[in-house]
Structures are given as structure tokens and as C-alpha cells.
Design a protein around this nucleic acid. Structure first.
Length: 359
DNA sequence: AAGACGTGGGG
DNA sequence: TCCCCAAGTCT
């Protein structure tokens, strides 16, 4: 399948026309004709990595309100950024977001670089985001390829090679279709189309501006594209959470996780390691922050991460203050828990402890 | 280069 | 219930 130069111009034009009529108004999108704020574009693109528009909305608004400029964000404390990010997931994004803001503020005088290669050097900005920001914020002739565009292009050309092998071919085909005029709108058009028309399941080919040219639709395989390699089943891990209450004031112990790795920099109810195979109770118990008289609460807390399922049992105890004060971490009231950046698994553990724990 | 890295919604 | 999916990056 090959398009002539004339074909590509026609396809780009019909896509932009579709965008002008059907594009969504999103908080980070400038009005047509207005120059977008690179800070807004960058912030939204980082938040939107592997995350839905609906989920991002409130976070984007809250960040912009609290940190109106990239310099404001650079001057923030990391813990405050992680706190504002809690629940959004992939927390390395928040750490890199903060790092990136600091670099832009200190080394670029608060002004984002306006080229793909300049952007690519910044923390948390990879090939997709560099391309997207260059196109959307700076109107550069760049062709970002995200999951939506992979789907649209693989269908348009009926590419049956599975991802990720087919990625270079998609990149090449997509670049060849990208117009010099309005490359940013064109990129957003493809993403909108992928999100609302050329959807993973039940694509609405009947209303697609490219239906007449789509090889995938014509051969009836569009809904099955792009092909992907099968994923390995997720293993299940188990562990304990230690709900430790200080006797005199009823405060609870929380602690900050190491900055690298899973849930890095967020706070946790102290816990054992999460193991693939259930270890004997005494091994898990030896990982408690303190030796104590534990009572196991009813039920378990289940949570699924990207690459494993987790089942946590909660052990509760109450410690005399002189004993409690030797432990590492922060003692907080229940209400005060909202001041800490807690990932969803920890919120579940807190909820479970409050529901089943000793009164 | 393949695996680590979150979460919530939809079918 | 369970699997797939969402504007990927880092190591």
C-alpha cells in the first residue's frame, strides 16, 4: 500500500477538517488560533502518559492552580508535588516532572526548549513527548506516535506485524503523512480520532474521515489491529501491613518509601516485603518495625499493580509511647493522613484498618 | 532489550 | 471476575 503525494495531502486535509469540526475542548488545549503555553502542553503530556483524559482533568487543574508557571513548580518541594500527584500512578513521572521543572528554571531561564532534540534531553521527556510538545506547543514539523496513532496508522495501512516490532514502520508511515501546515493540530487530530472513532474495540469506521482509504477497514481486519504480543500472566504476591497505634494519643505510624522503585517517595503504612511465595509467618513478622503483640484483622486488602497482584494482611498493635517513640517514621492522627502522599494501595490499607481494627 | 513502573474504567 | 486498555519513560 502506497499513497501518492496527492493522496497524503488529501488525507491530511480531511483529517484537519475533521478536527476543526469534532475536536474536543480540553483544559490544556488552546483555542484555535491561540498560541498554547508550552508549560501547559508539557504538563498535560506528562500526565497523559498511559493515563486517560478523564483521570488527568482534575490533576491538571490542581497543578496549574497551585503552580501557575514552571518556575513555581521548580520551587516546590518534591513531597508537595508527590502529594498533588497521589492517585495518578507511575510516580516516577512526578519525580521527573519536578526534576525537569528545576532544569528548565535554572538552566533555561524558565523557557522550554522549542525543538524536539532540545526537549528530548529533559528528564521524563522521551521520544513521544518531545515530538508532541514540539508539534503542539511550537508548531514544529514533528510526528508523535502514541498508542492512538499506532492504532490509526496500523489500520490505515493494514499492518499486521505485531507491536513493538512494527513501531518503526508506523513511525515512518505516520511521518510521511504529516503536513507541514498545522502539524500540532494534525497530531492532536489523530489522537482524538483514535480516542473517539478508531477505538481499540468496535471502531466507528462509518464516521471516519479516512474510511475510504483505510486498508484495515476494507479488508475487515481493522478491529484486530494493531496486533500485540501476548502478555505474561501477572504473578500474585503477599505481605503484611503493620498498623501501629501509639497508646497515649492514638496516632499511627507512617514512613516514607525510598525514592527509587515502586511507589518511590510516597508514604506507607509500614509493611513486610511483598513476596511471590507466602513466607512463614515468623519471617514476615521479623520484618515488622517492632516486636509486638499483633492481632490480625479480618480479611485482606487486594490490589493490582502493573506487573503483579498483591494481597496484604493487616496486623495491628498498640504501643506505649516510650516504646513507640524509638521507631523511624511519622506519627499522625487519622485526619492528618491526608497530609501525606499515599498511593492507592495504602489508602486501601488505611480504610481496612479503620473498618476492622480495634476501636 | 525486556521488564519495571499505577490506576481506574470498560467489556 | 478478569483482562485489556490509556497522549511512555527509564534502565
Amino acid at each position: 500500500m502506497h499513497f501518492t503525494h496527492q493522496d497524503t495531502q488529501r488525507l491530511a486535509a480531511s483529517m484537519l477538517e475533521w478536527y476543526d469540526r469534532h475536536h474536543r475542548t480540553l483544559p490544556w488545549r488552546s483555542e484555535p488560533g491561540d498560541t498554547p503555553d508550552p508549560y501547559h502542553v508539557w504538563l498535560s503530556e506528562i500526565m497523559l502518559q498511559q493515563t486517560t483524559v478523564q483521570t488527568v482533568g482534575p490533576y491538571f487543574a490542581a497543578f496549574l492552580k497551585r503552580w501557575p508557571t514552571v518556575t513555581d513548580l521548580a520551587n516546590a518541594e518534591l513531597d508537595d508535588v508527590l502529594h498533588a500527584w497521589q492517585g495518578l500512578g507511575y510516580y516516577a513521572r512526578a519525580r521527573n516532572l519536578h526534576k525537569c521543572a528545576k532544569v528548565v528554571a535554572s538552566e533555561y531561564d524558565g523557557v522550554f526548549p522549542d525543538t524536539e532534540e532540545g526537549l528530548l534531553k529533559l528528564p521524563g521527556i522521551g521520544p513521544y513527548t518531545a515530538c508532541a510538545v514540539a508539534a503542539i506547543a511550537f508548531n514544529r514539523h514533528a510526528s508523535p506516535v502514541d498508542g492512538n496513532i499506532e492504532r490509526v496508522i496500523s489500520r490505515l495501512f493494514a499492518l499486521e506485524t505485531p507491536l513493538p516490532d512494527v513501531k518503526p514502520e508506523i513511525k515512518e508511515k505516520s511521518a510521511a503523512l504529516t503536513p507541514s501546515d498545522r502539524p500540532g493540530d494534525y497530531a492532536q487530530a489523530l489522537m482524538d480520532l483514535g480516542a473517539t472513532v478508531c477505538t481499540p474495540r468496535n471502531p466507528a469506521c462509518g464516521i471516519c474521515p479516512w474510511q475510504a482509504d483505510c486498508e484495515g477497514r476494507k479488508s475487515g481486519i481493522a478491529p484486530d489491529l494493531p496486533k500485540k504480543r501476548k502478555k505474561d500472566p501477572k504473578p500474585t504476591r503477599v505481605g503484611y501491613a503493620f498498623w501501629i497505634r501509639r497508646e497515649d494519643d492514638g496516632r499511627i505510624l507512617v514512613r516514607r518509601r525510598p525514592e527509587k522503585g515502586l511507589l518511590g517517595g510516597l508514604y506507607e503504612v509500614p509493611g513486610s516485603d511483598w513476596r511471590a511465595i507466602e513466607a512463614p509467618d515468623d519471617v514476615m513478622l521479623s520484618e515488622a518495625p517492632v516486636s509486638a503483640n499483633w492481632s490480625e484483622l479480618d480479611g485482606t486488602v487486594g490490589h493490582t499493580f502493573t506487573h503483579f497482584h498483591l494481597n496484604v494482611s493487616v496486623l495491628a498493635t498498640t504501643l506505649p509511647a516510650d516504646h513507640a517513640d524509638k521507631l523511624e517514621g511519622s506519627w499522625t492522627t487519622i485526619d492528618g493522613l491526608s497530609d501525606f502522599a499515599l498511593p492507592t494501595i495504602m489508602k486501601k490499607i488505611v480504610r481496612h484498618a479503620l473498618k476492622y481494627g480495634p476501636a
